[in-house]
Amino acid sequence: MTALIAIGAGIAVMTGIGAGIGIGIATSKATESIARQPEASANINKALLLGCALAEATAIYGFVIGLLIILFLK
């Protein structure tokens, strides 16, 4: 039973894959556009931070679910 719970928590945390890919793409585009237009870096930073916060939320949901699985399925 413990092994199954651990596997379940591990699967839940796999949401991190999507968040990682998303943040990676967003950051690469942001660096590209800052290199092309350094004077717009303030606006680009703001948009990047918003995008990262929203993409990261999915990873956080996975983490919270994983934690709930471990804490409440004993």
Partner: peptide
Amino acid sequence: LSLCMRLFGNILG
């Protein structure tokens, strides 16, 4: 919900 969970999850993590 997402505002609350984002802050909580990050700090807890």
